[in-house]
């Protein structure tokens, strides 16, 4: 049994989740919000915050759901129950926020329900289980995966805001150029591959 809190492991997990295996640029998870909500920096920051919030919450929740599943020996229901739990959780959080913190609710806005069924959120839950993380590592991994996602999203939004004011060829406008940018960004992030601390 390894230590509950081991800082060098946590550091490796954090760097790995943000840079080396960036959810968008290396694992190619959550591409739809990455392309869809990266048109302006403001909305990308909002989306980033929402993802950080939901992913961390979902990571922790599914960790315990998996424990329950493991007790009954029905882990094959993982994917199904995770989707259900995440969706229910986000709906619940949304209702809670609307009632008790309207400011945050309006700040997160449409992005909160939007990421309910996001593959990145499900991905982080499944990866947590697959890597066999303990609860502290689950929190760090989920948080950092989301931070990595937010980082990629904001970078992308900055680039797309600039592309808005240059005349990109008509056939390349919108999604095509976004995918080319994402591809080159992903190539650039390959520089982090194999990084060890």
């Amino acid at each position: 049994m390894r230590e509950l809190v081991d800082f060098s492991t946590l550091m490796t997990i954090a760097i790995g989740a943000i840079f080396i295996n960036n959810f968008v640029l290396s694992r190619f998870l959550g591409i739809c919000p990455f392309v869809g909500v990266s048109k302006s920096v403001e909305s990308s920051v909002g989306m980033g915050m929402a993802v950080i919030f939901v992913m961390t919450l979902a990571g922790v929740a599914t960790y315990y759901v998996n424990k329950v599943l493991a007790l009954s020996g029905i882990e094959f229901l993982q994917t199904l129950s995770f989707i259900l739990v995440i969706a229910a959780l986000v709906q619940f959080v949304e209702m809670f926020l609307q009632k008790f913190n309207p400011a945050l609710y309006s700040a997160l806005g449409i992005y909160l329900p939007l990421i309910t069924t996001n593959c990145a959120v499900l991905g982080v839950s499944l990866l947590n289980i697959k890597e066999g993380y303990n609860i502290i590592e689950v929190i760090v991994f989920s948080l950092c995966a989301a931070v990595g996602f937010a980082l990629a999203l904001v970078i992308m939004a900055g680039i797309r805001e600039r592309l808005e004011i240059t005349d990109v060829p008509r056939s390349m406008e919108g999604a095509p150029i976004a995918f080319i940018v994402a591809g080159i960004l992903s190539l650039a992030f390959m520089g982090f591959s194999g990084m060890k601390f």
Binding site: V41, I155, G158, I159, R162, L185, A188, M190, G191
Partner: peptide, 12 residues
């Protein structure tokens, strides 16, 4: 790699 990543950050 580092220059490309900073290129990406240049608009920000």
């Amino acid at each position: 790699y580092s220059i490309l990543i900073m290129n990406a950050l240049t608009p920000l």
